[in-house]
């Protein structure tokens, strides 16, 4: 059976803090679960934003197979 993994990405200061740019998970229930699994249980910093499939989401948002989950700090463009 084809496995649809979950892609997890970290950006900017969170990429440096976790030491991870991208990783894949076999399963994750929520964004919080993806954070926990990808970081090996690292406590979540106070200000972390989550995007699922390029849209902002909450930490308790459900994840399904094939999703892309991204974690990043407050944005500072412009």
């Amino acid at each position: 059976m084809l496995s649809m993994s979950i892609e997890v990405k970290f950006f900017a200061s969170l990429r440096e803090k976790t030491g991870i740019a991208e990783t894949t998970l076999e399963h994750a229930q929520t964004a919080a679960d993806a954070w926990y699994q990808a970081t090996g249980g690292m406590p979540k910093p106070e200000k972390v934003l989550v995007a699922i499939n390029l849209e902002y989401a909450d930490f308790d948002a459900k994840i399904t197979a094939g999703d892309e989950v991204a974690f990043f700090p407050p944005v500072t463009g412009g």
């Binding site: 991204a70 944005v75 500072t76 463009g77």
Partner: peptide, 14 residues
Amino acid sequence: LIEELKQRAPFWKK
């Protein structure tokens, strides 16, 4: 547009 971009678009400055 500039306010929305600054608050929401995923860019980061170092």
